[in-house]
Design a protein around this nucleic acid. Structure first.
Length: 593
RNA sequence: GGCCUGGUAGUUCAGUUGGUUAGAACGCUAGCCUGUCACGCUAGAGGUCGAGAGUUCGAGUCUCUUCCAGGUCGCCA
């Protein structure tokens, strides 16, 4: 059993002492990191979230039972009293910030013993993620994880302060709310009191924050958990945190303007990086055309070029037929890389784009001795010349072509572009590239549901000049919707909302809802809108993704204290789990056996 | 739901064409050691090769099923 603290008080965190403290009597508390036992002299690295301090037990000067010091093992929780002393020159440890000093221990309390941990509590220790998550409390002791969570805290604090200073009010919205089946799957919560009814956990506070605008809280924010019952990814968890904001009496530029200030402040305070404003902006159309993605990584080129017009009437039917049926043929030029790809590697890239629905990928290498390609023999010299000119094809280049319907062309070449950048090391580490993507389409056609669905959500306003298209040409209607993109990742998105009832009704009509369906689902919002609604709009960030990018982590699990694994379970708590029959009976729920 | 990768000592891994008693490093245990900091030296313990079935004289290795973890496509208003 561990000893009690008694009247011992911690002087400061382990790594908060400096040369200035030499000679002081101090009390330190923390975990035993490594121990170097030389017999009558024992060194222990005492660790807490600030870092490490070496503490020394010397048999001749230690007041207590020296066997206690000898019994210290990894992860014991210790309190030590002693004095800060300067290290002699030959014993300085340049690897740690506190390496110039150490604590000469006179008194020790072993506050808690510890079993040998199942893995090393150290940075760089390679450990299976399964194990890290089962023993998350140990994993979270690692300095790297502590740094991540402390940086996440800094992002949240910087955001809170900025928004608060700029008149945004932090207002909480319910976690038990109404299911709105449009969009992602809801997590449902059965009601005990209402037999057969369910609450849903919010996918976002969207409707509530809009109602807050109706209520006159013209600047709102909340750092808030959101829930979506969809499959997980490296950057997607079923519960995640949004920095959610909404403002009244604004247009697109107003929202973008304040958020640029927020980002600038945050990058300065958290990362000590100076962000130049205004940020780059690309329209959705341009982002797709040039990068094949609505969240382009613009830290490198490898831009897409459309060659549809050149091959439209080509004898190479694979290309000409996709153009004639409304698709396109586009290409990427990997400058100077003709010799970097062996045939086997090209074939691997062809297989890679097939994941994204491409049926194949053509290529041309341009060498001193001419072109090498499986497709040039089907083309005229004029066509080849035109392609070379469009693609800026020069000796040493390799061109990759995909022809298909547009979504497949963009998806596959967009993905190929990222793959090539990774293979060719085109991305400078520690660079941060922020940009806006604007003018998203309002609708996209869902083959599955055989109707138009909202790209953003059904409350997103069309652009003023495209209002007529909501009825007449939904395919080409653009929205007042924007995303903020960092290094090829969508870190936030938002829109100006519809504040006009007639337009909102047109929207629902275009989405295939009857008036009754719209009222059944969103009636409370439509009702609220009848009583004086200001123009409003907002933006929400994914805090986890932002923290992932700013910490350089490869998964959001590394910036979430207790994340779930791919099948949405928690390895530490074993959630979700069965519940007993009595609990189910109270909820009026029967499980199919 | 589909595809890909992985699972061998506490941990990270190696394990050849199916062939003797399954190895290494770190960690752990014990002893020695007054300037270590990846302490050192000596000795030692530690294995259901994810699980199940099959092929075989013989399976960590081959086949099938299944479980777990990761990546990804679909999905994510």
């Amino acid at each position: 059993m561990g000893e009690f603290l008694g009247n011992w008080k911690r002087t400061a965190l382990c790594a908060e002492f400096t040369k200035e403290d030499i000679g002081k009597e101090v009390t330190l508390m923390g975990w035993a990191d490594t121990r170097r036992d030389l017999g009558a002299l024992i060194f222990v690295d005492l660790r807490d979230r600030s870092g490490i301090m070496q503490v020394v037990f010397n048999e001749s000067t230690f007041h207590g039972d020296f066997e206690d010091a000898g019994s210290i093992r990894s992860e014991f929780v210790l309190a030590v009293k002693g004095s800060i002393v300067e290290r002699s020159e030959d014993t300085i440890n340049a690897k740690i910030p506190t390496g110039l000093i150490e604590v000469k221990v006179t008194d020790l309390k072993i506050l808690s013993k510890a079993e040998t941990p199942p893995f090393d509590i150290a940075d760089g220790a390679k450990v299976r993620e399964e194990l890290r998550l089962k023993y998350r409390y140990l994993d979270l002791r690692r300095p790297e994880m502590q740094k991540n969570l402390m940086l996440r805290n800094k992002i949240a604090n910087s955001t809170r302060k900025f928004l608060s200073d700029n008149g945004f009010l932090d207002i909480e919205t319910p976690m038990l709310t109404k299911s709105t089946p449009e969009g992602a799957r809801d997590y449902l919560v059965p009601s005990r009191i209402h037999d057969g009814s369910f609450y849903a956990l919010p996918q976002s506070p969207q409707l509530f924050k809009q109602i807050l605008m109706v209520s006159g809280y013209d600047r709102y924010f909340q750092i808030v958990k959101c829930f979506r019952d969809e499959d997980l990814r490296a950057d997607r968890q079923p519960e995640f945190t949004q920095i959610d904001t909404e403002m009244s009496f604004v247009e697109v530029d107003d929202v973008i303007g304040i958020h640029e200030q927020l980002l600038k402040t945050m990058f300065h305070e958290v990362m000590d990086i100076d962000v130049k404003l205004p940020l780059k902006r690309l329209t959705y159309q341009e982002a797709m055309e040039r990068y094949g993605s609505d969240k382009p990584d613009t830290r490198f080129d490898l831009e897409l070029k459309n060659i549809s017009d050149i091959v439209e009437n080509s004898d190479f039917k694979v290309f000409s037929s996709v153009v004639k049926s409304g698709g396109s043929v586009r290409a990427i030029n990997a400058k100077g890389c003709a010799n970097l790809f062996a045939r086997r590697e090209i074939d691997a890239l062809v297989d890679y784009v097939k994941i994204y629905g491409a049926k194949g990928m053509a290529w041309i290498t341009i060498r001193e001795d001419g072109l090498n390609s499986p497709i040039t023999k089907f083309m005229t010299q004029d066509e080849i010349d035109a392609i070379m000119s469009r693609m800026d094809g020069q000796i040493g280049d390799i061109l990759f072509f995909v022809g298909d319907k547009n979504t497949v062309v963009f998806d596959s070449l967009g993905a190929l572009r990222l793959k090539l950048a990774e293979k060719l090391n085109l991305i400078q580490p520690n660079t941060y590239d922020l940009l806006w993507v604007t003018e998203f389409p309002l609708f996209e056609y869902s083959e599955e549901e055989k109707r138009y669905v909202a790209v953003h959500h059904p409350f997103t306003s069309p652009m003023d000049e495209d209002i007529d298209k909501v009825k007449s040409d939904p395919q080409n209607a653009r929205a007042k919707a924007y995303d903020i993109v960092l290094n090829g990742n969508e870190i936030g998105g938002g829109s100006i909302r519809i504040h006009n009832s007639e337009l909102q009704e047109q929207m629902f009509e275009a989405l295939g809802f009857t008036k009754e369906e719209a009222w059944e689902r969103f009636g409370f919002l439509l009702e609220a809108f009848k009583y004086g609604t200001p123009p409003h709009g907002g933006l929400a960030y994914g805090l986890d993704r932002l923290a992932m990018l700013l910490t350089g982590s490869s998964s959001i699990r590394d910036v979430i204290a207790f994340p779930k694994v791919q099948n949405a379970s928690c390895l530490m708590t074993q959630a979700p789990s069965c519940v007993d029959k009595k609990q189910l009976r109270e909820l009026h729920i029967k499980i199919d056996e």
